Amino acid sequence: MGDVRNRWTAPFGWVARVFRIPGEERRSLVQTTKAAAAAVIAWVVATSVLKLPQPFLAPYAAVFLVQATVYRSLRGWAQQVGAVSVGVLLAAGVGHIVPSVTVALGMVVFGGLLIGSWRGFGDSGVWVGVTGMLLISYGSATEPVLLADRLLETALGAAIGAVVNAVVLPPLHGERLRAATSRLASAIADVLDETAALVRGGEPPEAADAVQDRMRDVRSLVAEAEDAIGWTREGRFLNLRGRREAPEAPLENLVSLWPPLAQLIDAVSEAARSEQPFQHPGEHARGVVGDLLEALAEVARSGDPDRLDRCRELVGEIDHLLVTPTDEVSTSIGLGAMALPARRLVQRLHAD
């Protein structure tokens, strides 16, 4: 019953989130509304102002140019107009040479899709073949006036879509950046806490496998964070609202923690699984490393750099243990393997 109720209430929850939080749902609603408005404007201009006959390409192009970022809209306009122009020229050439519509259709689709695969056309490459196909099938490939109309319709619709996207609430992706920052910070903090328990020796060796599984989750979140940074940067480019966006530096700093974090987890896991005592630090040294990892987890969760003072103190204590010839650590290579990535974690968090 619970699953059925959730399916029925999901649309209402989606609408509630549109008004409650500035997230993905609200951006989708805004972009959908803009695409519909761009299509209507393109149709009105093409039919009532320019008096073009059957200007179906104008609203069609307008819808596809309301992209996820302003940059993609402007780039898409150039690519789409270029692709349609090539498709028109291809249809005109084949239509004049080949009398059979069936043969000409096959040649235009084949040649158009082949030409459209050039990466310079991007996602608009398919328009080369589609435009040629439409012109051949409608029998207008040999009529210069109709060919010019198709070009004008496409350029008009694409331009209207790009302008609407750039001027009316141009899309930004700050909420994606904030969500990725929160998820990654929480995941890193959880891994550090679990690793602290593992390094102290309070967990069975099998717990190292669980930490490694958690690290794979962190790696996935790092990839998501890199994607969010890319979308945010692209969304800010040529965007009238771009300066209002939160900086991506905090998330970049969290992403930079991945290499030393992975090295630290590998060192701790190897020491936890080892049956050779000289590879594992003594109890006091493990306690210091555990304290450091827990302090780093607090910094990752809070984002407060002032808490790094305690981390730096613990790093200094680990350095002292490494250079002090005591029975506990003089033969331990495990502490040295943990110390270097732990130091790098402190340094990179401090760089924020």
Rank of each mutant, 00 (worst) to 15 (best):
A210G: 01
G201K: 13
L172D: 08
A197I: 07
A166H: 05
L146N: 08
A162G: 08
R200K: 08
S182A: 14
L151I: 15
L184R: 08
A197P: 00
A208V: 08
I160G: 01
A148C: 05
D149L: 00
A148G: 15
L135Y: 09
A180L: 06
P204L: 02
L134H: 05
V145H: 07
D209L: 14
L172Q: 15
V164C: 02
R178D: 07
S186F: 05
A159Q: 02
G174P: 03
I136V: 15
A179G: 02
D209A: 04
V167N: 01
S140A: 12
S140C: 00
L177K: 06
A162T: 05
V167W: 09
I188E: 12
E194L: 11
A185W: 07
T181L: 12
V167H: 03
N165R: 04
G202Q: 11
V168S: 02
A158N: 10
I188A: 07
R200H: 03
S186T: 13
S140V: 15
E203I: 12
L156W: 12
D213H: 10
D213M: 13
D190Q: 11
H173P: 07
D193Q: 11
A208R: 00
L172M: 14
A162V: 00
V168Y: 05
E206Q: 09
I160S: 01
R176T: 08
A180H: 02
D213C: 01
R183L: 09
E143G: 01
V211K: 03
L192V: 13
R150F: 13
G174V: 06
T181R: 08
L135D: 05
R200T: 12
T154A: 09
I136Q: 10
A159S: 14
P204T: 00
P204W: 04
V191I: 09
R178G: 07
A189N: 08
R200I: 07
I136Y: 09
A155F: 02
D213P: 00
L156N: 10
L134D: 04
A180I: 05
D149T: 11
A179P: 00
Q212E: 15
S182M: 04
A196D: 04
Q212A: 15
N165V: 06
I160W: 04
G161I: 03
P170L: 06
L152K: 03
T154V: 13
P144D: 04
A197L: 15
L147S: 10
S182I: 05
P205M: 02
R183K: 11
E203V: 14
A158W: 09
H173D: 05
T181Q: 11
A189R: 01
E153T: 09
A185V: 06
P171T: 09
E206F: 11
D190R: 07
L172P: 03
D193F: 03
A180Q: 04
L134Y: 12
G202P: 01
R178S: 12
G157V: 10
N165F: 03
T154Q: 12
G201R: 12
A180D: 02
D193Y: 05
A208C: 07
